[in-house]
Amino acid sequence: MSTNLLIQYIVIALVVLASALYAFRKLAPALTSRWLASTSIHLSQPEHAAWVRAFGRRLQPKQATGDCSDGCSTCSACGPKPPANAKGDAVPLEFRPRRHP
């Protein structure tokens, strides 16, 4: 196997791994947050080197502050807005003819 082919395989593997991690974080945010928190606690132990502890502090997930910008979805205030017709009545469809140029 040539060196160029090996480098190509490594780059492709890194791209696939990064894509899988990104998709996993989008599909299971609570699980990945727990995993990051436990990894961060493990790496922040005093017996590790300073650079490992610094990396562990960087891995800590954001804490929910109760602000609407953190996306914690605990109060449902940030969720979808109710329809404009709050009574629950059906809104009639309105059909318009196409305009031909």
Rank of each mutant, 00 (worst) to 15 (best):
A30L: 13
P82L: 07
A49K: 07
Y9A: 11
A86D: 05
V15H: 00
A18Q: 03
G79N: 08
L93P: 04
S38G: 00
D70E: 04
C72S: 09
C72V: 05
F95N: 05
F24I: 04
F95Y: 15
D67G: 11
P46K: 04
N85R: 10
A90C: 10
P46E: 03
H100P: 00
A37W: 12
P83T: 09
R25S: 12
L21W: 04
R99K: 13
C68N: 09
A50S: 12
A13G: 09
S73D: 15
A54Q: 06
S2M: 03
E94A: 11
L36D: 14
G56D: 01
A84W: 07
K87Y: 06
I7Y: 09
A23C: 03
P80M: 07
Q60A: 13
A37V: 00
L31F: 10
S76G: 10
P83F: 10
S69R: 15
T39L: 15
R53T: 02
L21I: 14
H42K: 08
P46C: 01
I7Q: 11
R99P: 00
A30Q: 13
V91R: 07
K87R: 13
R58M: 11
R98E: 14
P97V: 09
P80Q: 08
V16Y: 04
T32Y: 03
A90S: 13
K26H: 10
S2E: 02
L36F: 03
E47N: 07
S33R: 14
D89Y: 10
G56W: 01
A54N: 03
A84M: 08
I7T: 10
C78V: 04
A30H: 07
S2D: 07
R57I: 00
R98V: 14
A64Y: 06
G88M: 02
S2V: 01
Q63N: 08
S38C: 00
C78W: 01
I10S: 08
F95A: 12
C75F: 03
S38A: 12
A90T: 07
F55A: 15
W51F: 14
S38P: 00
R53V: 05
Y9P: 00
S73I: 02
A13N: 07
M1L: 12
Y22M: 08
V15T: 12
L17Y: 06
P97C: 02
Q60E: 15
T74K: 15
A13E: 06
F55L: 15
Q63L: 12
F24C: 06
S73C: 12
A18R: 01
L21S: 09
G66Q: 04
A77Y: 05
D89P: 00
A13S: 10
A28Q: 13
A84H: 05
C75Y: 05
A23W: 12
N4E: 06
L27K: 08
Q8C: 11
A50W: 08
I10T: 07
D89C: 05
L5A: 13
Q45T: 10
R98D: 13
K87G: 09
V15C: 08
R58Y: 14
C72L: 01
S76V: 01
P92S: 06
G79T: 14
A23Y: 09
P101W: 06
A37P: 00
I10R: 05
K87P: 00
T3H: 04
F95H: 10
